[in-house]
Design a protein around this nucleic acid. Structure first.
Lengths: 359, 359
DNA sequence: TGATATGATGTTAGCGCTAGCAGAATGATT
DNA sequence: AATCATTCTGCTAGCGCTAACATCATATCA
């Protein structure tokens, strides 16, 4: 196998070993035609014997392509972004691209610029931006990316940039209407951080769906996507005297925390309060009770974004569009019809505050 | 900002704009001394005006360094590996390195070779290998990496390769002994896939700890790290007639599934069966009941591996060692002393099969 | 037989950058 | 005034590869 040479073998080393020009070796490596079978075989032998591997930097310099995609992601600690990264990587590799990862922890322009700088200097042929959060305009993004083609994932619905998004409005309508159809009239919400597009969209559609049904929305508290945040948010809801038989939670982890909080306050799920989540994380089916939630197809998101990006790289004139994926309701056992007279009389319209004020 | 030139600006463009040689611009870009303040200022202005960014490929070619680390990871869909990736990335960036990610889905030499090929051709200065799984010898790894310095994470304890590992034996002893100390005498196990070093180590130490305490290990069933796998494994345990008051589970997700299975069979946790997990995922505290588990410091793992790798890059003669981190028991509420006479009489030694055979 | 296609190779130049050396200018020292 | 060190700048080469063209041999056709 690999020679014990101190230096890595180069194209030229291989060429000399075989007695051909380096160009011929290059042709073999890149699978070009017009190399005789005999030569090809001998070159391949030498490549193996010398342990030759093409130098990507040199190739990039010559071809102006890197066969690398950059992933810039915010919120990689959360389930959604992490899933997206995984699936983007998988698809990119299947398409012959490597990926380089740049996770940003804070949403400062400085951090973002640093992330892009790390990727911008001709290290990547294209960028997948996982930007689930407000704060950067489309113009900002375009300015930062420069001439590098990019696709955004999980960004603002309706934005006029190359992007693939999940219709969070639809998902929110789905669960909210589901609870309404079950007979719930008093709904509260634990939303994700409202500077996330998805959280915002879910919140808005939660409101709108209730209004359309002629119901008054109950309290909505902002969580932080974590179980702990959900726990605290639910406690706050209860402490503020909110009265509700249905609770729409921005993701499954927060739903888990919320359920625990409800239980600690003596409320049973779903008998006293129906709880629904978002994401359908693999554990959701094994929560107590198994969680009714909304499933998002992250695999499709990853695949389609890479496909789109690759077509953008191959042909920069590919028209700009936003592809919208629809999530799907997964019915399990954390929601059921409300018990009569539990918290409120049948037909009574939901109140966001209990009449008998806090103790 | 960036000019609307069709082409990206190069060092030479900047040099011409200022009227100096490209070398001087290079000095400014790289912060070398011996550039007059006046010149430096003018160059920096021009850089900004032209939107110049150094071409990494060209720089790599000239310097033979890429300032990139490669992460090759198996099992990125699981909590541990995903956490490691996140923390490696974070630390690498703090140290001035970018990371390129190569996730392998199957443990075939072919997949691994492909992953390394994608990274090997002078794209990275060093490799972090997340290889939690058996199948590759240290020699294989060294052969595959060639001359590129590497550090393994989460590999075999005691292996003589540059590596950072968590002492899974210790962790397993911790929980197992904990249950024994609580008074449990009949313990079963749901292990992770036994081709994972961690799962293997935990399994072995589970056995050893029981033996040392003079107890006969109950049944051990292999899971797949997922909640669903834990669910099915627990069901199998029950179906095979295992009798136990304590259950050691290989990770938190499987513990979640197991708890659900136990509950569906009418067993309460922890009153009838104490369950302990591994990992301390952020949700574990909000499980029903809150899960007693073992916390692993993935952040330290990521940090130390990158630090080690960087020192290996800077000085190839850095001595080879394995750094071992110790996990920590997190007591919550999924384990308590066994009830007397629930499944077995006090003092009775655990049987791995019930006397009255399956129905 | 000469003209034309086509397969198989080599030659040349250059991608954008940095290392290393070679100056040139300035000031300090003999 | 000659010598030396110090600060600044430019020149040249080359990192390893590929695109584009040039070359040469062989096969095909009129």
């Amino acid at each position: 196998m690999a020679e014990t040479d101190s230096k890595r073998a180069t194209l030229n080393d291989v060429a000399q070993a075989v007695g051909v020009s380096s160009q011929t070796v290059s042709r073999v490596v890149n699978g070009h035609p017009y190399v005789s079978d005999e030569t090809r075989r001998r070159v391949q032998d030498a490549i193996r014997k010398l342990g030759y591997r093409p130098n990507r930097a040199a190739r990039s310099l010559a071809t102006q392509r890197t066969c690398m995609l950059g992933i810039v992601t915010f919120g990689i600690d959360h389930y959604g972004p992490a899933q997206m990264v995984t699936h983007v990587e998988r698809t990119a590799r299947a398409r012959g691209y490597g990926v380089t990862l740049s996770a940003i922890r804070a949403l400062t322009p400085h951090e973002i610029r640093a992330a892009l700088d790390a990727l911008g200097g001709s290290v990547v042929d294209g960028l997948v931006l996982i930007t689930p959060v407000t704060g950067l305009s489309a113009a900002d993004i375009e300015a930062l990316c420069g001439h590098i083609p990019f696709v955004q994932i999980d960004t603002e619905l309706g934005a006029n940039v190359p992007s693939i998004v999940i219709d969070q409005h639809f998902g929110s309508r789905l669960v909210t209407q589901y609870l309404i159809d079950l007979g719930h009239r008093a709904l509260c919400e634990i939303s994700g951080p409202l500077n996330w597009y998805g959280a915002q969209a879910r919140h808005e559609s939660w409101l709108k769906t209730l209004h359309r049904a002629g119901l008054t929305p109950g309290l909505s508290v902002e969580g932080d996507w974590t179980a702990e945040g959900g726990f605290r948010a639910a406690l706050r809801l209860l402490d503020e005297g909110a009265v509700f038989s249905g609770l729409v939670v921005g993701n499954d982890q927060m739903a888990l925390g919320a359920i625990r909080a409800l239980r600690e306050r003596g409320l049973r799920v779903p008998e006293d309060v129906s709880v629904v989540g978002f994401d359908d994380i693999p554990e959701a089916a094994y929560f107590e009770p198994p969680l009714t939630t909304v499933c998002q197809n992250f695999a499709a998101l990853g695949e389609q974004s890479v496909e789109y990006l690759v077509s953008l790289i191959d042909n920069p004139l590919t028209p700009v569009h936003q592809r919208v994926l629809r999530p799907q309701l997964i019915e399990r056992h954390s929601a059921c019809p409300p018990r009569q007279g539990a918290f409120f009389l049948e037909g009574e319209i939901a109140l966001s505050r209990r009449s008998e004020e806090a103790d």
